[in-house]
Design a protein around this nucleic acid. Structure first.
Lengths: 149, 149
DNA sequence: GCTAATCTCTACAGTCTCTGGAGCTATTTG
DNA sequence: CAAATAGCTCCAGAGACTGTAGAGATTAGC
């Protein structure tokens, strides 16, 4: 935990590319790293965890602004609750919604895999099924849960 | 079912923006549309279903390459199941993994919201939850979610 | 100690997936 | 039939990377 390492090692440990790490630093998702005598970035274990977190959250479909908020919850655990609570609640709603939708897809994919028993996919109904799910379409907040808006 | 309609109606019915539909055509996610005398694209019901499917899958965090694969399952209904089965299983694994991670995050966020009601978030473990997931050796394929909110 | 291989640095161009605008044409409707 | 609406193509830009070039830093082998 003591000896710092450079960006290449951080990249390997976290699974985030070197360029991406520098990009995250640039946009403030990662703190400004200490520098060595020769101007190379130096990191510790905390950065590995942070990057793994970002990577997973990205994989789960969160946008960087959302992830930034989640990171803030961890960065300032002593902060007054009002704001954090609001963020946590909003993220929680988002997460619950994602789970719900994914569970629906899981069901359909499972059925499909079952139906697909080494024959032909003559009645593969993924498209039908997913496109007929009108109920989960009109979502409150304009559909895609992402940045922007 | 018979009368064709133009892109605006398709957009409304599917919930996908006009520009995005044209973009999908450009990159081959949607077939080249027939054109009217005046060069306007004409569509039928099949396109509505296809676009709804794409939209849902995007909302769920699938990348276009993955969606393309899923669409192929429906486009080639006479194809032998082997490959399709494999794709479906892979997507299913991906979905299950996401659900698992999201559930962990959900638990943590719920806990935080609860704690918030009583004072402060003394130990926020959001990062830990999502950063400790080493077992899921990041896999490429199409899981990437580029949706941002 | 010197050199070659291997990072790392900055800066900037390009990709992917949309999204929006300008300027013009087609269609609908009052 | 003119105005409003919708569509067309082409182009720019945003978000989140990804890759490349050229120069400096670090390390490993001799």
């Amino acid at each position: 935990m003591d000896h710092a390492f450079t960006i290449g090692r951080l990249s390997k440990e976290s699974g985030v590319k070197v360029q991406t790490i520098r990009y995250y630093e640039e946009i403030g998702m990662m703190p400004l790293a200490m520098r060595s005598e020769g101007n190379q970035r130096l990191y510790g274990d905390a950065e590995i965890a942070r990057l793994k977190f970002i990577r997973h959250a990205r994989d789960l479909g969160f946008g960087l602004p959302a992830i930034r908020e989640l990171l803030e919850l961890g960065d300032a655990p002593e902060a007054p609750c009002a704001h954090a609570d609001e963020i946590a609640k909003r993220q929680l709603r988002d997460v619950e919604e994602k789970i719900e939708q994914l569970t629906g897809l899981q069901t359909e994919l499972t059925r499909m895999v079952k139906q697909c028993n080494h024959g032909q996919i003559s009645d593969c109904r993924v498209i039908e099924i997913l496109s007929d799910h009108d109920n989960c379409l009109e979502e409150s907040h304009g559909g895609r849960a992402h940045v922007k808006s």
